[in-house]
C-alpha cells in the first residue's frame, strides 16, 4: 500500500514537472525609461524599435516611434506619435487617437486613466480576428503616448500581464525602476 502511494506521488511530481517544462517560459520584466520623452514603463522580453507613421484627420501625417516585444504570445507595444508642432490641440489629438483605436471594434472597457497627475484613458477592445487589446493613451510633452498589449485569438484574455504592462507607466522619473534601461532613441 505504501509503495503504491509513493509511486503515485512520483508520477504526480513527474507529470507536474512535464507540464511546467512544456509551458512557454515567461521572460523577466525590465524597467525602461526615456528622459527626453518623459515617461517610464516595464515590459517583458527584448524591446525592438521601429519607425512608424500615424495618420488622422485632425493630426494629419505624423511620424511615430514604436517599441515592441513579444512574450508568451502577448505583444507589448509602446507607441509615441510626434504631434509636438500642434500640441495646442492636445485634447482633440488624444481624443482622436482613442476614437480611431476603438472605431468599428467591440469596445469592452473605456475608463479614465490617471497617473502622476496626468489624465488619459484606458480602453479594451476585441479585434475582428478575436484577439484582444488593452491600451492606455496619454499626452506627454506634445506627444501621444500609447501602451498597447494584445493577446492573440485563443490566448488567455484574462491574463493580468496586459494590465501590468499598461499600468506600469509613470511620468515621474523617481518612480521608474532603479535599474531601468534608457530607451534608445533613433538618430
Amino acid at each position: 500500500m505504501r509503495s503504491r502511494f509513493s509511486a503515485w506521488i512520483l508520477a504526480a511530481v513527474a507529470g507536474a514537472a512535464l507540464v511546467a517544462s512544456a509551458a512557454p517560459a515567461s521572460a523577466a520584466w525590465k524597467g525602461y525609461i526615456s528622459h527626453p520623452l518623459g515617461f517610464a514603463f516595464a515590459a517583458p522580453g527584448d524591446l525592438k524599435f521601429e519607425r512608424g507613421k500615424y495618420q488622422a484627420a485632425v493630426a494629419g501625417n505624423c511620424d511615430s516611434m514604436v517599441w515592441r516585444s513579444v512574450d508568451d504570445g502577448i505583444e507589448y507595444k509602446v507607441i509615441v506619435i510626434d504631434t509636438v508642432a500642434q500640441a495646442n490641440k492636445a485634447a482633440t489629438l488624444l481624443g482622436e487617437a482613442e476614437y480611431i483605436f476603438q472605431d468599428q471594434k467591440k469596445l469592452l472597457m473605456d475608463a479614465f486613466g490617471r497617473v502622476d497627475g496626468k489624465f488619459g484613458r484606458k480602453l479594451t477592445i476585441d479585434l475582428p480576428n478575436k484577439s484582444r487589446t488593452t491600451a492606455a493613451f496619454w499626452f506627454v510633452n506634445g506627444r501621444i503616448v500609447s501602451l498597447q498589449a494584445t493577446v492573440p485569438a485563443n490566448g488567455d484574455v484574462d491574463t493580468p500581464e496586459m494590465a501590468r504592462f499598461v499600468d506600469s507607466i509613470t511620468f515621474y522619473p523617481v518612480r521608474a525602476a532603479d535599474d531601468a534601461l534608457e530607451l534608445p532613441l533613433p538618430k
Partner: peptide, 14 residues
C-alpha cells in the same frame, strides 16, 4: 497651458 489641454479636460470630466 494649451499643451496640457488633454489632462485639464480629463480632470474636469473626472
Amino acid at each position: 497651458a494649451q499643451a496640457d489641454g488633454a489632462t485639464i479636460l480629463g480632470e474636469r470630466e473626472y
